[in-house]
Simulated assay, not measured.
Amino acid sequence: MPSFDIISEVDTVELKNAVDNSNRDLETRFDFRNVEASFSLNKEIVKISAEAEFQILQMRDILRANLAKRGVDARAMETKDIAHSGKTVSQEALFKQGIDTPIAKQLVKMIKDSKIKVQASIQGDKVRVTGKKRDDLQAAMALVRNAEELDKPFQFDNFRD
């Protein structure tokens, strides 16, 4: 029986490259001369630190642009509130791996409501979709790709015929 998995993962190597490129961009930008500003990566958390809040917003745009260049979907980034500490301001951006249970439940419900002849089941941090016909599976993939209300990047893995 044909099946595939719906996953949501971020390539950590490309994430590291995007952070490194963002740091290089800061060195060449005129508006960041003589400013203490940097990006740092710790596992899947990018810490953005600068001297002012408006600089944090500019740096977040720089990071998004470099993520797009490296093929990492910026929708996987979840930013926390801006924290003020002394002279510096910082913000953390988390890159989540896997699909959370509420989003997985929404995915399963959306697939079942579409009346496509496939079965969807939650398996840990991914959703497995099985069906009798390959065309039905491809229709389910198209449905998930076009689901804008979930606002999360999904990849398809482990396609079995």
Rank of each mutant, 00 (worst) to 15 (best):
K133W: 05
S114D: 07
D136R: 04
G124P: 09
K96G: 14
G98E: 02
Q119E: 12
Q123D: 08
K133P: 11
K105V: 03
D125T: 13
A93C: 07
T101K: 02
M141H: 03
I122R: 03
D100E: 13
I103V: 15
D113M: 11
V108K: 13
M141E: 08
A120Q: 04
G131V: 06
S114F: 05
K115L: 07
Q123G: 01
L137W: 04
K96S: 15
K112P: 09
P102N: 08
D135R: 14
V118R: 11
Q123H: 09
D135E: 14
S121H: 06
R128V: 13
I103Y: 04
K132Q: 08
A139H: 12
K109V: 09
I99Q: 05
Q119R: 14
D100P: 14
I122G: 03
T130K: 15
Q123E: 09
S121G: 03
I116P: 15
K109C: 09
G98T: 05
S114E: 10
I122M: 01
D100L: 12
S114Y: 07
A104W: 00
M141F: 05
V127T: 07
P102M: 00
K126F: 10
I103G: 01
I111D: 05
M110C: 11
K115Y: 06
Q123W: 06
S114C: 09
Q123C: 00
G124T: 02
D136N: 10
M110Y: 09
I111V: 14
R128Y: 02
M110V: 08
T130I: 14
R128G: 03
D136L: 02
A120I: 03
D100Q: 14
A140C: 13
K133N: 13
D125E: 13
K117M: 13
V129R: 08
D135H: 13
A104M: 04
M110R: 14
Q106P: 14
K115N: 10
P102H: 00
K133E: 15
M110W: 02
M141G: 02
K112L: 09
M141S: 03
Q119I: 06
D100I: 10
D136T: 06
I111H: 00
G124M: 07
S121D: 04
P102F: 02
D135C: 06
R134I: 15
Q138T: 02
R128E: 13
K115I: 01
V129N: 12
A120Y: 02
G98Q: 03
